[in-house]
Simulated scan of single mutants.
Amino acid sequence: MKDGKDLRCLNTVYVWELPVRIYHWLNALSIVLLMATGLYIGNPLLRPTVVTGEAATNFFMGYAFMIHIAAGYLFIANYLFRLYWAFVGNEYARSHHWPWQKSFWIEFFDVLLSYLFLKHHKDEHLGHNPVANLAYFGFIMVGSVFMALTGFAMYGELNPNGFFGGLQWVFHIFGPSYNVHMLHRLMAWGIVGFVVTHLYLAIRHDMFARNGTLSSMVSGYKFRCEE
């Protein structure tokens, strides 16, 4: 039911191809690993007051750092693959709505007001609507690049003559290491906020549109419904 009316689901549409679904879940996994290990690296709650014994038995921070870096590699490789698939995937694998189009902003505010329960708007997009497009572009497309540059620049500080030592120009743009650390963490929390909002809106859309939003990221299929 939607506003007292029955929804008729006419047919199923294959929206999210397997590579897109794999990207989605790998991205979720890498974000969880990065955030969990990043929080520990920034505030090692399990760090003993006095370290005794061999270093091999007190290497929790080292393991956390290793997982953080490995998850960072996964995050970036997954990101690059998603960019590639935007060009070779189906029509739902890429955006068809751009901020320089007047129609984008008209529908953007219609969808936004609908999400805030301030206006009824029938969202007919099986893929991403303008609000989702802008959020993904800001936090995932741009945010991922920012996190990669600042993260690997800090990693390069450990070995200035190594491969990532070439990212020292990041510090010339954003300031000393402390500033880069702070900006890296702020963007990390911004991505966490995006994830929480994404989960809320996905559940909300699944309940109101009844088009299989949640299950589609497993099966790939959505339902095309009408009142």
Rank of each mutant, 00 (worst) to 15 (best):
M1V: 14
K2G: 11
G4S: 12
G4L: 14
D6P: 13
D6I: 11
L7E: 04
R8I: 15
R8Y: 12
C9F: 08
C9P: 15
V13W: 06
Y14C: 02
V15K: 03
V15M: 07
V15Q: 09
W16L: 05
E17G: 09
E17W: 06
L18K: 12
P19Q: 00
V20E: 05
R21H: 05
H24Q: 03
L26Q: 02
I31Q: 02
V32Y: 08
L34Y: 09
M35A: 15
M35E: 03
G38N: 12
G38D: 04
G38R: 02
Y40R: 00
Y40W: 13
G42T: 03
N43T: 10
L45T: 10
P48Q: 02
V50F: 07
T52A: 04
T52L: 11
G53I: 10
E54G: 11
A56K: 11
A56W: 08
A56G: 05
T57A: 13
F65K: 15
F65W: 08
F65Q: 10
M66R: 14
H68D: 04
I69R: 15
A70G: 05
A71H: 08
Y73K: 03
Y73W: 15
L74H: 07
L74E: 01
F75C: 01
N78C: 07
L80F: 09
L80Q: 00
F81N: 06
A86M: 12
A86Q: 01
A86W: 01
N90Y: 03
A93L: 02
H96E: 09
H96Y: 14
H97Q: 12
H97G: 03
Q101R: 06
W105N: 07
F108P: 14
D110R: 14
V111G: 13
L112V: 09
L113R: 15
S114F: 15
Y115S: 06
Y115I: 01
K122H: 15
E124V: 10
L126K: 08
G127H: 01
G127D: 07
G127V: 09
H128A: 05
V131L: 03
L134A: 13
L134Y: 01
Y136L: 09
F139S: 01
I140F: 00
I140L: 14
I140W: 07
M141T: 13
G143D: 06
S144Q: 02
F146L: 12
T150S: 10
G151Q: 03
M154S: 01
G156S: 03
P160Y: 00
P160L: 06
N161D: 13
G162D: 01
F163S: 02
F163P: 08
F164C: 04
G165F: 04
G165I: 04
Q168S: 13
W169V: 00
F171T: 10
F174R: 11
G175T: 08
P176D: 14
S177D: 08
S177R: 11
S177F: 09
Y178P: 04
V180G: 07
V180K: 02
H181D: 02
M182G: 01
L183K: 03
L183E: 06
L186R: 06
M187T: 11
G190I: 03
I191W: 05
L199K: 09
L201H: 11
A202F: 09
A202C: 12
A202I: 12
H205W: 07
H205T: 15
F208S: 04
N211T: 07
N211L: 04
T213I: 15
T213C: 09
T213M: 12
L214R: 08
L214T: 14
M217L: 15
V218K: 00
E226T: 13
E226D: 07
E227N: 13
